[in-house]
């Protein structure tokens, strides 16, 4: 088993929404109104963006106060190749910007025309607002050098508050190339040739199916390749009677755990060719493989199991494998 494992693209996605709370919700609402706010701590420090508590004392913060709209860059880093999710399409700087009247800094993008020679610590900047605002940190599109903003933006501050933001989208999308590892890859490759390969623990001699990186009882690799039969015994089953989107057949049908002859772990599959009510513990079944042209490195190479016609196996033969 020296070959590389299988790999495949994989996207992890969480489509969460997130509640904002009174302090952050108010700040995001103010952004929608093109206003920048901070909060004052009991020690007199002004936090912007605001936090719900004073990071130095843990105490609640006070009422919101207006800050900015101008500020000063306190540190920066250049992004030569912006990504689609970044706020600025051409090369830009991420910067910490301390807004006028605030004691802490806000991280945001600074658009200096795509030339890194135009950004420096100490640069005075002003916000550039998006035309369509939703109550997000991105309503502030980016900061721009102060003199440039004076030419390009007509200040039209909203006079009425649109209120706080209660919820915000907070989705996660991450792309991976996942790998199966060599043990699982061995198992998958064998299925493409109508073979079922488990891994035997050299210590307790149990045959794991699929093979595992380590025997959970002995703590050694269970990697002695061992071919098992494509027939076996139903150890337990479940009759599915409720339809769902991914169901392989219209219900009712039976899912089974099959202990293949030569294996110590059952695999989970479907059984056909028998009324669901007749499926039982101890029933002998055999694999029905897909046509050769459809074989692949997947357990779906076995279409389902069907009764083999052999007499039922005894309970004693499966009781250690339930």
């Amino acid at each position: 088993m020296q070959h590389d494992g299988f790999e495949a693209p994989y996207r992890l996605e969480y489509t969460y929404r997130r509640s904002t709370g009174p302090v952050i919700g108010r700040f995001l609402g103010a952004l929608r109104d093109r206003r920048l706010e901070g909060v004052k701590t009991s020690a007199g420090r002004v936090l912007s963006p605001p936090g719900e508590y004073d990071p130095e004392t843990g105490e609640d913060v006070g009422a919101p106060i207006d800050v900015g709209p101008g500020g000063v860059v306190t540190t920066w880093t250049w992004i030569a190749e912006p990504k689609p999710l970044h706020p600025v399409a051409r090369p830009f700087a991420w910067a910490l910007v301390r807004l006028d009247g605030a004691d802490t800094a806000m991280l945001h993008a600074v658009d200096v025309g795509g030339d890194s020679g135009n950004i420096r610590t100490g640069l005075r900047v002003s916000p550039r607002w998006r035309a369509v605002r939703t109550g997000s940190i991105r309503d502030l599109e980016c900061f721009v050098p102060e003199d440039l903003s004076a030419r390009t933006e007509v200040r039209t501050l909203a006079t009425e508050s649109s209120g706080p933001v209660a919820m915000m989208p907070s989705s996660v999308q991450l792309d991976y190339t996942i790998t199966a590892g060599r043990h699982l890859s061995t198992y998958l490759r064998a299925l493409a040739t109508k073979r079922i390969v488990g891994g035997r623990c050299p210590s307790c001699t149990k045959v794991y199916l699929p093979p595992r990186g380590a025997c959970p009882t002995c703590g050694v690799p269970a990697d002695a390749e061992t071919e098992v039969a494509d027939r076996g015994t139903v150890t337990t089953f479940c009759i599915i009677r409720i339809p769902f989107d991914a169901a392989p057949f219209p219900p009712p049908y039976a899912s089974v755990a099959v202990l293949l002859d030569g294996a110590d772990m059952p695999i989970f599959h479907l059984v056909r060719g028998v009324e669901p009510e007749e499926v039982r513990m101890g029933m002998r079944v055999r694999a029905v493989w897909v046509p050769d042209a459809e074989l692949g490195p997947t357990l779906a190479s076995i279409r389902w199991f069907e009764p083999s016609g052999e007499p039922d196996a005894s309970y004693e033969s499966i009781e250690g494998h339930l």
Binding site: D4, G5, T179, R212, G213, A214, G219
Partner: peptide, 13 residues
Amino acid sequence: TTREEAELVQPVV
């Protein structure tokens, strides 16, 4: 690409 979780952990433990 050859080791999944348990295969990384087993040898060092």
